[in-house]
């Protein structure tokens, strides 16, 4: 079988925290820009199914990028002596730098897991830069029930342990091929990267106090959550949606924490519905 996909990849250098970051990004389609954020410990490959979906790309310019330290984006110079710990500020700065670098005009922001968490932070802090938010497996805050240091130690493979742990969040309805493709990204994650992402995800609770300031009349927020997600449970997502005036929520009965990656066909209708809920900027109040 031979097939060339419509996804193209390029590199963009931006400045984050005062130093250059070489960022890998992919895109497909034309129309309204949708910027897609991967989960912790993974990369843009999680979005490839939707980026190859002709119905999505017929009217949307789908863009995904690898966060620094992830996928094909290099860590910053001097990383060999640094401890990678993602922060809300650096995460926001990176996303806004990519938007500026690519010249995106008020994209829809679609983020999953930690990407969903930061999407809600941006909905609170920088809504003027976006036209809507699709927050997938997103919630206000959950402390870790595991020790994040498990995933960065010299006597074991953090990627393999991380994959084994996050497999708990994949639905048994997911096809095996995509379950394992999803886990492969975690297995490939650089040393300490999953841990550094989890530091942001499990220790920074600053979103809780900001949820009430999100204005869904200007920028809609739609939250999607899988019933098999043990990390961001439907209860976590429902609590979060209740705290955002006007936010909408859909529970996906047969999906888990990585829906666009673990079960693309199952997730597709929910994502199309979410896109339809994102009003064009001119339609916003």
């Amino acid at each position: 079988m031979t097939a060339i996909e419509p996804i193209t990849g390029r590199y963009l250098t931006v400045t984050v925290e005062g130093a250059p970051r070489r960022i890998y990004f992919e895109e497909a389609g034309a129309g309204r820009p949708v910027l897609c954020l991967h989960t912790a410990g993974a990369d843009t490959r999680q979005w490839r199914h939707l980026m190859n979906d002709a119905e999505v790309t017929a009217s949307h310019r789908m863009i995904a990028f690898d966060m620094p330290w992830h996928g094909k984006s290099l860590p910053p110079e001097g990383f060999e002596t640094q401890e990678y710990l993602l922060t809300t500020d650096a995460y926001i700065e990176t996303i806004l730098a990519v938007i500026d670098g690519l010249g995106l005009e008020r994209p829809v922001l679609a983020g999953c897991s930690m990407g969903g968490r930061i999407a809600l932070q941006l909905a609170a802090l920088h809504p003027e830069r976006f036209s809507g938010f699709i927050a997938i497996e997103a919630s206000d805050f959950q402390p870790a029930w595991y020790d994040i240091d498990w995933f960065h130690r010299p006597d074991a493979h953090g990627g393999e342990m991380g994959a084994a742990l996050v497999s708990a969040n994949i639905s048994p309805h997911a096809p095996d091929e995509e379950r394992w493709n999803t886990l492969w990204m975690f297995m490939q994650s650089g040393p300490g990267v999953f841990r550094g992402d989890l530091s942001f995800y499990t220790r920074d609770d600053s979103l809780i106090a900001r949820l009430g300031q999100i204005d869904c009349t200007r920028t809609p927020v739609h939250i999607l959550v899988g019933a098999y997600d043990l990390t961001c449970t439907p209860e976590d997502a429902e609590r979060t949606a209740r705290a955002i005036p006007g936010a909408t929520l859909t529970v996906m009965d047969e999906l888990g924490h990585f829906p666009m990656s673990e079960h693309p066909q199952g997730f597709r209708p929910f994502f199309l519905d979410a896109l339809a809920r994102m009003r064009q900027p001119a339609e916003a109040a």
Binding site: L165, S167, A168, S171, Y228, L230
Partner: peptide, 9 residues
């Protein structure tokens, strides 16, 4: 069912 799919669930 959700939660019963994994020992950590």
């Amino acid at each position: 069912a959700p939660g019963f799919h994994d020992i950590f669930g």
